[in-house]
Every structure is written in C-alpha cells, then in structure tokens.
C-alpha cells in the first residue's frame, strides 16, 4: 500500500475530480443524445446576444440542475416513513462517493491497492443503488413503489451480469485487488476475455444507469418519475449527485478492469479520457437506438444474454488461469 499521507491527499482530491468527471460524462451523454436526435442539446457556446442574460456555456448543465434543486423547497409527505425517506439519498451519495475511492484513476492509486478492493467497490456500488430503492419504498407513493420494484428486479439481473463479469476477470488474474487487475499485462486469450466480460460489464452499466432499453424504473410515460416521484428539492438533488458519482464510478471501473494499463499512470490520462468518451458514446448509441423494454422482457433478455456470455467468459478466465 502507498504512503498514507499521499493516499489521504488523493482521497480529498478525488471528490471534486469524480464530481467534475461525472458531470462531464452526463453532459456528453446529453449532448450526444441531442445530436443523434438532430438537435443541438445543451449549448457549448451560447449565442452572443443571449450570453450576458443566461450564461456563456452549458457544459456544467447537470451540475446546474443539482445546484438549482438545492435552492428549492423540500416537500415531505406525511405518509412517508420520515427517517428512511430523508436519509436514503444521503446514504446513497455516501456510498457512491466512497466507491470512487476504491477505483484507480490515472496518476491516483487511492485505496485500490487494499486487499479485496474489488469486492469492497462492488459492495459499495450495490449499497448506493440499494438506497435508491429504499427511499422510494419509504415515500408511500404507489409510483415510487412500482418504480422501486422494477428497480429491484433490474438490479438483481444487472448484478448477475456485473458479478459474472468482474469475477471472471478476477479469476483470470488471480487477485481481488483492483490495482493489480488494472496493472495486468495483455495476451491473446485476455483480449478475448476483455471482450466477453467487457460486454457483460457494459450491459450491467446499462441497467445500473437506466440507459434506454432498461429505463423502466424511471419510465416517465407510465409511472410518473418512478423512484424519484415523491422526491423534491434538496433530497432529489442529492439523488442526482449520487447518480453523477455513480456514472463516474462505473466508467472508471470499466476502464480499470477491462482496459488494463489505462488507469495505472498519469501518462495514460489521454488514453483514459478517450476510452471514457468512447464508452459514453457507446452508451448513448444504445440509448438512442432502443425503445424501452417491459420489465419481464428485460429480465429474459438479461438471462438470455448474460448466462451464455458469462459461461464463455468463465471458461476463458479458467483457461488463462490454468495455462498461467
């Protein structure tokens, strides 16, 4: 493990970095989404005559959304279980931020070299999502409850995909420490493994970030806003903040596990940024090309795709392990 002082500094530095990167990823996601729909999306350079009135750029649009929500009333219904309703967003944010500490960023090793960091990181991600389920359940709103139920089902299957993916990689490299996995070398079978388990992790990301075929928890045409229906003001802002961090965490985890050397040293930063942008681009392509699945379709789809690919992935990982 690295020097504790450096680790502390890195951890303190990681929070703004993760926030900024998460906001930029979400902005890129929205912008690309808009361009695929033949429109402009949040403007990068505001028109010269409007700039003094409404600001020069909208690159920080997701951050403005969150900040605005902090300046609004918070409404709490009396049917809600108060304590759970109020504290769930905070816990969700807490776990999302602490998950960011276990994932290496180019130039920052953070806590990724502690033993079993892969297990810790995956548990923190799971906990963060769990609290986005608990809050809505406590809100007492039927829409929140339906959204939370869908979220649970989606969470279970996407977790299957997630776990199969990260543990086949862990099996192939024989370690549960993220920094060691992120520093592993390349070989012909490991490229194949990266493909299969990368696909699994990508599919898991779709479910966790509610990208289009799997956005049924937030299906605004059917169940208002799903889990977030009863949330308003600051609490909603904290959920959005937690989602911003989670976006960063999943993208960083994908690059750390699937594209090995990219998050080990500061010199790999351009490659890391490029990979992240490509990943967000791919997420956007999936989002714009797909309609929303029904929840049962999504379950079948996950089982149909994930189990064969997961098996192939495990066989490759086992093969690499035995040969090595």
């Amino acid at each position: 493990m690295a020097d504790p002082v450096i680790t502390t500094i890195e951890i303190i530095l990681m929070v703004p970095v993760a926030l900024i990167l998460g906001v930029l990823f979400l902005f890129l996601f929205r912008k690309l989404n808009a361009r695929f729909q033949w429109r402009v999306g949040p403007v990068i350079r505001m028109y010269s005559d409007l700039a003094p009135l409404i600001g020069k750029t909208r690159i920080w649009q997701p951050l403005y959304d969150i900040l605005k929500l902090f300046g609004k009333d918070t409404i709490i219904t009396d049917v809600a279980h108060r304590r759970l309703f109020v504290y769930s967003p905070y816990f969700s944010l807490l776990f999302a931020i602490s998950a960011a500490f276990f994932i290496p960023f180019p130039g920052m090793e953070l806590l990724s070299s502690v033993p079993y960091s892969l297990v810790i990181a995956s548990y923190l991600i799971i906990s963060s999502i769990l609290f986005t389920i608990l809050g809505p359940v406590a809100s007492g709103s039927p829409w929140g409850a339906i959204g939370a139920r869908r979220e649970v089902e989606l969470f279970l299957v996407s977790e299957l995909s997630f776990v199969l993916s990260i543990f086949s990689i862990a099996l192939s490299s024989g370690t549960l420490v993220i920094s060691e996995i992120a520093g592993r070398g390349w070989s012909a079978p490991s490229i194949l493994l990266s493909l299969t388990s990368g696909l699994l992790l990508f599919v898991a990301m779709l479910g966790k970030l509610h990208i289009k075929p799997f956005d049924m928890p937030e299906a605004e045409a059917e169940i208002v806003a799903g889990p977030y229906t009863e949330y308003s003001g600051k609490l909603l802002g904290i959920y959005f903040l937690s989602k911003t961090f989670l976006t960063y965490v999943l993208v960083a985890l994908f690059i750390a596990l699937i594209l090995p050397p990219a998050s080990t040293s500061i010199f790999w930063l351009p490659a890391w940024a490029f990979a992240a942008m490509v990943l967000v681009f791919l997420l956007t392509v999936v989002q714009v090309l797909n309609p929303r699945y029904r929840i049962n379709n999504a379950l079948y789809w996950y089982v149909k795709v994930v189990i064969p690919v997961g098996l192939v992935s495990f066989i490759i990982a086992f093969f690499i392990r035995v040969v090595a």
């Binding site: 808009a34 361009r35 033949w38 429109r39 402009v40 028109y47 010269s48 005559d49 409007l50």
Partner: peptide, 15 residues
C-alpha cells in the same frame, strides 16, 4: 450530410 448540422433554429437569439 443530414446529420452534420442540427435542424434547430437559434430562436430566442436574433444574431
């Protein structure tokens, strides 16, 4: 060519 430029107008701005 179809997707190179968006169809959005600059509306509230009168540049």
């Amino acid at each position: 060519s179809r997707y190179s430029s968006p169809m959005t107008l600059k509306y509230p701005s009168g540049v």
